[in-house]
Design a binder for these strands. Sequence first.
DNA 1: ATACTCCCCTGAGAGC
DNA 2: TGCTCTCAGGGGAGTA
Length: 274
Amino acid sequence: MPELPEVETVVQTLKAQLGHATFTHVDVLWDNIIAQDLEEFKTRIQNQTIQNYGRKGKYLLFELDDYMLIAHLRMEGKFYIQMPEEPINKHIHVIFHLKDGRELRYHDTRKFGRMSIRPKRQDLNYEELANTGPDALDENVTSLELYHKWHQKRIRLKHMLLDQRFLAGIGNIYADEICFSCQLHPATLVTHLSKKDFENICFHTRRILKGAVQAGGTTIRSYTSSLGVHGRFQLELKVHQRVHQPCICCQTPIKKIQLEGRGTYFCPMCQKRK
DNA sequence: ATACTCCCCTGAGAGC
DNA sequence: TGCTCTCAGGGGAGTA
């Protein structure tokens, strides 16, 4: 599923392939993808040119002349740039028509993704982003700030990592990888974490996500209009999806448990509960 | 304020 | 082979 690095790859790829494209109109084939009044969405997109591309956490931000097109891919959302004559896959739910004749098509097998168009504003205070904290790659946020804000909460480490108000962009896969790199049990209570632990969490979060962005970036050339734009995570996962396989550090079989309703992988030897 | 539960969806995999 | 059942999962909404 797309997490921060995949979304970043999508942003960069669309920027390279679409540039300052202009929308003529949009066809919506599945209404629930649109998180606002459908007619309002359709009206606002007309004749808008993309001025800039951005991202906050897992949200894609297309800055238009007067509006911001905000999209979340959730589990399986993808954007394709295709020509009108290309067949429309059954999982295509939104078709943006471009002035240059191409189409930006939104593909989403499970229909979990959402998008909306809001009047543009400088402060990024869009309702969609209300629960989105600082971007995980925003270096201006210090571990000490995060420590003061979070260490007294009665939640587990995995919960904090998945909470987009902590650092936006971390999903289930990277949360497990971060816990592993920090040698912390995902069920550790946040109140038991030290300032040093928060330092490690920030360091490894950024290290892992940046590495994944790089990996996504390296495959950017392979994207074509028919291939789809969805980002690829090619880094080797150290614990996630590796149940029963030996830990790369100590050979202990990786365990899988349910935590916060999420499948959670960890090494019972390397990651001790504090 | 915080903590659950439900919901949105489909494809994959299990069981028969 | 083919049917039915179960489940994953980000995040918002609703409820306790």
